[in-house]
Design a protein around this nucleic acid. Structure first.
Lengths: 230, 230
DNA sequence: ACCTGAACACCGTTCAAGT
DNA sequence: ACCTGAACACCGTTCAAGT
């Protein structure tokens, strides 16, 4: 059903940017998709639902987007713009921490987006901005250019993977705590796991910080080694 | 179309394990699904295609599996059995390296399976066997039980994420090398990235080993810190 | 240039029916 | 107990048609 405020078809001068509130745009489509993803999650997302959400025929979207995949990439791109990395220090450790904490927060604000980025066929060019920052910082610190690139991928894989896990709620049975509680696994057969998960509940922030600290410490060791070798 | 060798319906004594070649089983369904996943990939996999592959009605599968999701979990479980971790040393570093190298090799042998495990709603109980081993080793080495559990998840997130990347071929546009070559990004704007990716091609084995070494080195630092604090 | 409507070739899953 | 066949409520996408 078309309502007046969603279906206005104002004609406008050719060549003018179509900024009418009711006109579809790649950017507008992406933003609506993000809103829908935030509301209903990736599993329930479909082109048809998005079209419905925009009070439009599914095919209308294909004027602004090549593909469902292309659509999702537009969303990823739009989100990553928010995750602009503005380091507060010139120490590579601070740069790394700032960047990936920021990325993580952005992913948590949009729970579907970590999966989205990891699933995308093409990485939006956007990811190369923080990548340049990190690779440069690590290279300056003493890593070779290739090592710096590897380090970046270790960090982003960890960050996105962690955010995915957290976004999924962790409750869906991936949780060892729940597995123990529901007797899916026997504590006696897994004493160390049982000890780690009885009593306290899993803290994602602490987990992330532990992982980040571990990787940073590991990179310190790699840098020390690289310097010793040089 | 049913062929004689795929559609035989031998009656057999009730209570007997149904080991007839032509009888469907949760295990047999899972194995066929794995074969199909290995051949065509996760994107092309569907319940209906699997049914076709087994020369059977789609609904027949639902006698042995609750769900598409349940089906995929059965596959994940089946694969993880292959990835049995048999450490060759009692040094926690060796245990960690052996386990995750083995897991990675298994994932590379079945390219869809890393995504499968990360997508699964429920972790197969199988993952708790290596988890117990790792958590125990790290706890013995000096980490608290919770820290040991966190360390395990850092490692598995990295390993699965890396395997996913590699399985995807890396060529689908995630590759900075290709992004540079195809001029999707300007080398002049990303000098450090450009330097890291010009000339040599990306080596996944080296990437994995770098990441593993980095995390192990980071854990050494965490353990040293934990011991100093105790 | 942008949107529509009907159509195509698929999905996962339910349900009643067969043996 | 296990499998079938028809059906339901969805998908992504193409194509010809409208404005």
């Amino acid at each position: 059903v078309l309502t007046p405020e969603t279906a206005g078809h104002q004609t406008h001068r050719a060549g003018e940017p179509a900024t009418r509130r009711t006109t579809l745009t790649r950017a507008r489509v992406a933003r609506a998709a993000l809103a829908l993803l935030d509301r209903d999650g990736l599993a329930k997302f479909s082109v048809r639902r998005l079209a419905d959400y925009l009070s439009v025929t599914p095919m209308a979207l294909y004027n602004h987007v090549n593909d469902k995949n292309d659509l999702l990439q537009a969303v990823a791109e739009a989100v990553l713009v928010e995750a602009e990395c503005a380091p507060t220090s010139s120490d590579w450790r601070d740069i790394v921490r700032d960047c990936f904490r920021t990325l993580r927060q952005t992913c948590l604000a949009h729970p579907s987006v970590a999966s989205l980025i990891q699933t995308a066929d093409e990485l939006p060019a956007r990811v190369f901005q923080p990548m340049e920052l990190i690779v440069n910082a690590l290279h300056t610190a003493g890593l070779s250019a290739e090592e710096a690139a590897r380090a970046y991928f270790v960090l982003i894989t960890f960050t996105l993977g962690q955010a995915r896990h957290q976004a999924k709620g962790w409750s869906h049975g991936v949780n060892p705590e729940a597995a123990l509680r529901e007797r899916r696994i026997e504590p006696s057969k897994f004493p160390a796991v049982a000890q780690a998960f009885t009593g306290q509940s899993w803290d994602f922030d602490e987990f992330f910080e532990f992982g980040l600290a571990t990787i940073v410490a590991g990179l310190e060791a790699q840098i020390a080694e690289a310097r010793a070798g040089a």
